[in-house]
Simulated scan of single mutants.
Amino acid sequence: MSEKKSHLIHELFVRNRRALTAYLVRRVGSEAAHDLLQETFVRALRHDRFDDVADPPAFLQRIAANLTRDYGRRRRTEAKYLSFDRILGEPPSWDAPQDEIVDRDRRAQRLASAIEALPPRCREVFELCAFEDMPLPEIARRLGVTERMVRQHMRIAMQRCWAAIR
């Protein structure tokens, strides 16, 4: 990365952080806002021709808006398809001992946290496979990555999920 680009991004961050954070908090809440703010600037840094962008603050706003749309879409998908029963097993019966019910709830919370903590691409691969029953070759085609990379993401996701619920 060039010194000029690094300096430009730093200046944009200093000038636009507060406004972008406020925008993101309004759209996705304070928990996710800081992660999306960071991702906004990471994407700007990765943009090959950032030096040619006519209005960098507007460009950052567009990136943030796209990220909030993706975030909302992901949350809707999770709410629709996310069923921990497939990973955690059948829920305890209504007459099960209270400690069994509490234990399953705790494991479910740890699993949800583990999934949320996965790197974005790893989480996306895991969700497509685990909750949408998409085959690995189709995930690779859809995401534009190799099947080997999809298998690697799944291996990491499964290790972390299993570790979280044990």
Rank of each mutant, 00 (worst) to 15 (best):
Y71C: 00
F59V: 06
Y81R: 04
A19H: 07
R123Y: 09
F13V: 04
K5N: 00
S113A: 07
A44Q: 04
I9V: 12
A32C: 13
N66P: 04
L111C: 01
C129T: 05
D70Q: 12
I156N: 10
S30L: 10
D51K: 10
R73M: 12
N66T: 14
V14L: 06
I165G: 02
G72W: 09
R123W: 09
H7N: 10
A157Y: 00
F50M: 01
K5S: 05
H10I: 08
L88W: 02
A164Q: 01
R76W: 13
A33N: 05
E132R: 15
E132L: 12
Q38C: 01
Y81Q: 02
Q109N: 10
Y23Q: 03
D103I: 05
S2V: 09
P137A: 07
S83Q: 01
P120E: 01
F41P: 03
P135E: 12
R123T: 06
F41M: 11
L24P: 04
A96N: 00
Q109Y: 00
E116V: 03
P135D: 12
L20D: 05
A164N: 08
M1S: 13
C161A: 12
V42S: 13
L20V: 09
L8R: 08
R75M: 09
R17I: 08
A33S: 07
A112L: 02
K4I: 07
F13I: 08
A140Q: 11
S83Y: 00
E147F: 01
E127P: 02
D95L: 14
L143D: 03
I9F: 01
E39C: 11
R27F: 10
L37E: 06
W94V: 15
K80E: 04
R86D: 12
G144A: 04
R151M: 03
L60I: 07
L82T: 09
E31T: 08
R74T: 08
A64K: 05
R123I: 02
